[in-house]
């Protein structure tokens, strides 16, 4: 068993455990914190898999911005907990389906897909962010710009949705 595999297993277990923690924690803040841990673990996987830019984006966007937003909303609403949130009687079909999905995907992954497992080329990996940027601003320029508009729309939408109408005001 190589050190790489041990690392993978530890990280994988951490990811699964944190996901399970998010899944089962009654308190929304805990759930959010478990999720942050999960995101961080996944970011490590990104690094291992030769995607440093994505890993950093993961940490900053997900672990930073998004989860902070979550926590912010949780705090804002003061609705951290819901009584009797999980009805254990009712979750059996969901669990069965979930296990079935896991089984199917694992079967798919191990029986149907054969990876070549090529070693990562260092040159490519090192030049990754530069090349990524080049690709992003040349080949994928149009989707990139559309993404920016999407973000703008989302921002405007969020503001419009949450805006409190003043009584007697003009809206």
């Amino acid at each position: 068993m190589t050190g790489e595999l041990i690392l993978f297993l530890i990280l994988a277990l951490t990811a699964i455990a944190s996901a399970a923690g998010m899944l089962l924690s009654r308190h929304a803040v805990y759930a959010a914190l478990y999720l942050v841990l999960n995101f961080a673990t996944v970011a490590v996987f990104y690094l291992i898999l030769g995607s440093p830019f994505i890993a950093l984006a993961q940490v900053s966007v997900y672990g930073g911005a998004i989860m902070v937003l979550f926590l912010f909303v949780i705090m804002l609403l003061g609705a951290e907990q819901i009584p009797a949130e999980i009805k254990w009687k009712n979750i059996l079909p969901a669990v069965i389906l979930g296990l079935a999905l896991v089984g199917q995907t694992l079967y798919l992954v191990f029986q149907k897909i054969a990876f070549s497992n090529l070693p990562l080329e260092n040159s490519v990996a090192e030049a990754n962010p530069t090349h990524l940027a080049k690709s992003l601003f040349s080949t994928y320029l149009l989707p990139f710009e559309i993404t920016s508009i999407l973000l703008l729309v989302a921002m405007v939408g969020a503001i419009v949705l949450t805006k409190q109408e003043k009584k007697g005001g003009r809206g």
Binding site: A94, L97, A100, Q104, T105, Y107, L108, K112
Partner: peptide, 16 residues
């Protein structure tokens, strides 16, 4: 969502 999940499982099972 459960129905969607069921559909996913069934279709995936069929494909497999």
């Amino acid at each position: 969502a459960l129905s969607v999940m069921l559909g996913v499982v069934v279709i995936l099972g069929y494909l497999l």
